[in-house]
Computed example of a mutant assay.
Amino acid sequence: MIKWGYNIIKNITKNFYLAKGANYNFKDKTLIFKILNLLYLKSVFGKNENEVSQEIFGFKVTAYSYNTIILLFKEIFITNDYFFQSDNQTPKIIDCGANIGMSILYFKFRYPNCSIVAFEPNPRAFDLLKKNIEQNKLDKIELYNLALSDTTEEIDFYTGNDNEILLASTLKERGGQNNIKIQAHKLSSYLNDTVDLIKVDIEGSENQLLIDLVSSGKINNSKKYIIEYHHKINNKKSSFSTFIKPFEDSGFEYNIKTSFPKIGAFQDVLLYIYK
């Protein structure tokens, strides 16, 4: 009992400092603190259910576990990694790797009148993505259960167990133990007009997506990119310069956000690419 009490106090204290450091006003920081604590207590004391839900900034978010909501809430809403500024109050956004839709909710929180085209290849995640869009009655959103690559064929896709929806990739080294076939499309076929932002988090397939954008000549059809680049997956040879060069050649500038635990380790690199 003492240990339980200590862990609860420890996590509530951690949530306090996390909310305090978030780049929000006092009212929103208070709400973040409340949401973090509710999610934590539900994850510890809640019943085992097929689906769980939590309200976040006026949106109802449904997932297969509270831990998934906690992780995505921290990664997207608290860190503001997908924040971008636009003079257009109705920006056009393409979300590559939408998962259960937390990124879409974030974009709608920032720009309520934005329009979004979203792609998510994982069938289990896509089911929740549809549900989260429908139950929040969000408009101007198109959803596609497709992978993005430099081909239009069926390709291998690796997933974790049913509830491990964050573990999925076209790369065996990055995905789970289950192999399924999914349909791939080229992003360039959805880029006939200029968009304000392309967000990319596709677990190592960003290289194939870029190959398509370059070969189709449509790399300039987005004003900005926010890309999670996966560096040294399975200790592969470094090739970041090859990835970023097409953006440099096209006149883009960029900022980089990253960290790593030790020399030579895999790391997620967040790229803010703009003109």
Rank of each mutant, 00 (worst) to 15 (best):
D196N: 15
N23T: 11
T30M: 14
N192Y: 06
N221A: 06
Y144C: 06
K172R: 08
K236H: 12
P261G: 09
I78F: 07
P121G: 06
K223Y: 03
N23Y: 08
G46H: 06
Y158T: 04
V44P: 04
A147Q: 04
T13I: 10
F33H: 11
Y40E: 05
E173T: 04
S86Y: 06
L31V: 10
L191S: 06
F59H: 02
R110A: 08
S250D: 07
L31K: 12
L191H: 00
G46E: 05
N122F: 14
P121L: 07
I9S: 13
V269P: 00
S86D: 10
F84I: 06
H230K: 07
S215C: 02
Q177S: 14
I2Y: 12
D156N: 15
Y24G: 07
E142L: 14
E49R: 13
T152Q: 08
T62R: 02
L72T: 02
F240K: 05
L171D: 04
I141L: 10
T159Q: 12
Y64E: 03
S259V: 05
L171E: 09
M1T: 07
L210Q: 07
F45M: 15
T90A: 10
Q54I: 04
F126M: 08
I56C: 02
Q183M: 14
K10F: 13
Y6N: 12
F266L: 15
P91Q: 03
K237D: 09
L171A: 04
Q54D: 01
G176F: 02
S238H: 11
A22V: 06
K232E: 09
L143W: 05
N7S: 09
F119E: 02
D196Y: 01
I100G: 02
